[in-house]
Design a protein around this nucleic acid. Structure first.
Lengths: 199, 199, 199, 199
DNA sequence: GATGAATGAGAATTCATTCAT
DNA sequence: AATGAATGAATTCTCATTCAT
């Protein structure tokens, strides 16, 4: 097995990123099993050989692809939430959280859902990403504690809220249930979140 | 393409069920892509040919396997909830709902999570099972309306509750987050459900 | 391997014939490789087991099926030709030959073409049927010699005529060539046959 | 489905041709159904994967293989016939036609017979090659009209002649009938052709 | 004798990965 | 370093034939 290059030069780093981005695009669109490495290399405009000089194997591309995504997802969300005016208005915070999460979720449609799949299918991928959800909930928790919104059982409360926000965004883009009215659902979920965080 | 046998005789029906159960076991354990038809036939103690005389293809085994599961899951849950004493005590109802859901979820560890994966990966499977979730939420809604617990926006409220119950049970068995205290989470979720349904 | 039954009783003989006829129908329609033994047994209304108690294997069904066909084909053709009025009018003879061959060929569309395929694909089948064409040409030759139409090089002449009649009937039913006018072709072929046989 | 490579580089073109030639050899020898793709790849000295990177499926190999054959068959025959001295001596023309057809037919024994089989078995293959026979007869017709040999009903006359030449060559190599004397047959067929074309 | 469920070798095809050029 | 042709194990599915009931 040939050495995997850890790119130092600018051009190499760019190539590696281009491949990861191509992978991300295709994995989101067609899933891990529906995407093959030749497609990825074609989409990235490089040779198959090149892919394997930057990545150990297909899974490695997957991890890199979703690392990029998760990283920018988190950063964008936190920046957005931190930028809210002080003192924090909880209702506005929740609105922004929901709006932003749905927006991010929507841009790369099924990314998060796809990731959960792979975490379930592959132990290594699970190990790699299992801390992301913790980190996300922790960051939200931090902000809320910092602003005096919650104090006790804070992580559990926030986790339940995260679940609701995620379900809402899934309802928006991936699995819509015909009988549900989205706006009513959003309103109920916001209500539940506010109560969870206030009591 | 050879005809698929619709078994009428007892022995045939049993064989078909044995194969579906073997498929269910392996699909839950190792996922759809991690399981091959030869493994399924070996585990079921039949030949590969037998598998393909009862099922059109691998996906057909998957659907049959999860149909069985979903069917018994639903039946057991509804029987349990209906058997609760009248007049309905909402707190007891929620406790039982959670307890039972977790219990059922736990027995075939990742079944529901696996199913959601395949619904995302495969349109036919999605079509086949997309009504299950609706049916489940509707049944719960019916019980609650019948007992005068909720009236307006009932389906959306129940859907949010279902999300929370499901997240809790996932937390129990599939994706545990280290920093979370399960009992605290359960308590918070129960609280959120009670409030959602009462207001 | 279980014994192949050589049916003596009337019912058995009938069953064997029914299976062979079912095979013939399906082999003509879909070819040898496009037909499987289960289809044959279903079409014949018997069990797969029954098929294998009358026939050694699939090829054996094929041979029996085409034996029946070839037998009745020959008989009908010879009866027809023999029934022509004496003294033999060669032009009428050729007309009847062509008309009857096309008619027989047409009723089980591709039977003869299918048989030639299998004779090429399978040595045993080739051995079994290779004498049919000889027999057919010989019978025609006999009639013509008997009527004083030909004397020298008779078999070769008749063989060439058979080739032309066969090509004409194929043109009618299996492989039509767009640019050809069938009636013109028929006229030319009749002319060629008459010349071949007269000189 | 992975993309089929349309080879541009010399090495690739060669590989594709080697595979098609291997296929041709085996298909002629053992028929389409008697040849599997692993044999083809082994005979061609490449991997199974290579076969499927140049060809969509087994049928695609068949078509390519016979395209090559038909192409060179036609070209050689027409060159030969065109090279005959002017003014055209019909008797010589027919002799050369027969000699060359038999020679070409003989080098890849059953190729043409095999092709007719597949045209009967497979609609796509039929569509692909159905014009070859027309083209062949048309070219011969052209030459004969150009030389003033025939004028009316030319295509039908030539078609009948083609049938006879083909039957003769089949008699030489594939289906010999014991009772027939080949030279006598050839002589009779030549006579029939000359008369057909002259009247 | 009859049935049709079961067998399992064999076929076509795919795709992650390697390596000669 | 880059390329993309080649590899071949693995997978899904078929079907002639057998044999327990």
């Amino acid at each position: 097995m040939s050495e995997i290059r850890e790119p130092k030069q600018k051009r190499s780093i760019e190539t590696k990123e281009i491949i990861a981005k191509a992978g991300f695009k295709l994995f989101c669109e067609k899933g891990y099993h529906g995407t093959n490495t030749i497609e990825i290399s074609k989409y990235a405009g490089v040779s198959t050989g090149a892919v394997y000089s930057y990545f150990k194997d297909k899974r490695d591309i997957y991890i890199a692809a979703f690392d990029q995504y998760i990283g920018s997802f988190s950063n964008l969300l936190f920046e957005k939430l931190k930028s809210l005016q002080q003192p924090l208005d909880l209702s506005v915070f929740v609105d922004e959280w929901i709006a932003f999460y749905i927006d991010l979720f929507g841009t790369s449609e099924q990314a998060l859902a796809r990731l959960r799949i792979m975490m379930l299918e592959d132990e290594d991928i699970n190990r790699h990403f299992c801390n992301f959800e913790n980190a996300y909930a922790l960051k939200i928790t931090e902000i809320l504690i910092h602003n005096g919104v919650i104090s006790d059982n804070s992580l559990e409360k926030v986790f339940a809220c995260c679940t609701l926000v995620d379900a809402l965004s899934r309802e928006k883009s991936v699995y819509p249930h015909e009988q549900l009215n989205f706006d009513v659902l959003k309103c109920q979920i916001k209500k539940a979140i506010l109560i969870l965080l206030s009591t």
